[in-house]
C-alpha cells in the first residue's frame, strides 16, 4: 500500500533496531539527507547499512555512524579524505565492515530485487575479497559465487514522484536508487516534487511504483 507522508519523521517511523537499511547515493549525489536525519532522530540503532561509501564529512550517513547507530557497513569505498567518523569507529573496532567490489554490490542488490539466489562473476577472482568463496570455470574464465543482499528498508532520493509512486531521478543522482527500491521490503523515497497520476510520461518512468511504499516531499 503506497503512502504519502507529510514529514520525514512520519516517513521513517517504524524502522526497527537491528534493521538492514539500504541508503541510496554515490558520495553526496542521490544521498537522501533528510531521511537519514530523520532516521537518526528516530533513535533506531544496531543498523546494518548498505551504501556505496561510509559517509562524508559531518552530515548524512556520516552522522549516523558518528552517533553509533551503525553496527555494520556493507560498502565498496569507505575510505575517503573526509570519512573521519567511519575511520574512527573502524579503528576503534566499533563498526564491522563488509567490503564489496562496487559492481558486486550493485549486482547483489539487483539480484535480491530480481529474486536471484546468487550468481557467478569474474570480478574479484584471485583477490582477497573472494577468499573462501565458491569458484567455477565458466565461459573461459574463473568466476566467483556471490549472493544477493536483501534489506528491510531502503531510503532513496528521487526528483519526482507521481501519485502511483512512479519515480524519475536526476542525472548521476540516480545511481543505486532503482535497484535498492527493488531489493528492500519497504522503500521510502524522498522527492523534490509530487505530480498527479498521469503527470509522468510512462516511457520515462525509471522506478515503477510497485517498488515504492512511502513517499515524502522535501525542500
Amino acid at each position: 500500500m503506497l503512502e504519502f507522508k507529510d514529514t520525514v519523521a512520519e516517513a521513517v517511523a517504524g524502522i526497527e533496531d537491528g534493521s538492514i537499511v539500504m541508503i541510496g547515493g554515490f558520495g553526496n549525489a542521490g544521498q537522501p539527507f533528510e531521511l537519514i536525519d530523520a532516521l537518526l532522530q528516530s533513535g533506531a540503532t544496531g543498523l546494518t547499512v548498505v551504501n556505496n561509501n561510509a559517509g562524508q564529512a559531518d552530515e548524512g550517513l556520516a552522522l549516523l555512524i558518528k552517533e553509533g547507530r551503525v553496527r555494520k557497513m556493507i560498502c565498496s569505498f569507505p575510505r575517503q579524505s573526509d570519512s573521519w567518523h567511519f575511520d574512527a569507529k573502524y579503528r576503534a573496532g566499533q563498526i564491522e565492515l563488509e567490503l564489496v567490489p562496487q559492481g558486486n554490490l550493485a549486482e547483489r542488490i539487483r539480484a535480491a530485487g530480481a529474486g536471484i539466489g546468487g550468481f557467478f562473476t569474474p570480478t574479484g577472482y584471485g583477490t582477497m575479497l573472494a577468499e573462501g568463496k565458491e569458484t567455477r570455470f565458466l565461459d573461459g574464465k574463473w568466476q566467483v559465487f556471490e549472493t544477493p543482499i536483501h534489506a528491510d528498508v531502503a531510503l532513496i532520493k528521487a526528483l519526482t514522484a507521481d501519485r502511483k509512486g512512479n519515480l524519475v531521478y536526476r542525472k548521476t543522482a540516480r545511481n543505486f536508487g532503482p535497484i535498492m527500491a527493488a531489493a528492500a521490503k519497504r522503500t521510502i523515497a524522498q522527492v523534490s516534487e509530487i505530480v498527479p497520476t498521469g503527470g509522468l510520461d510512462p516511457e520515462n518512468v525509471i522506478t515503477p511504483g510497485i517498488y515504492v511504499n512511502t513517499i515524502v516531499k522535501v525542500g
Binding site: L97, P101, Q102, T123
Partner: peptide
C-alpha cells in the same frame, strides 16, 4: 582501511 570501489570490475 581497505576501499576497492569499482577497480576490480574495471580490471576484469
Amino acid at each position: 582501511i581497505p576501499a576497492v570501489g569499482g577497480a576490480m570490475d574495471l580490471a576484469t
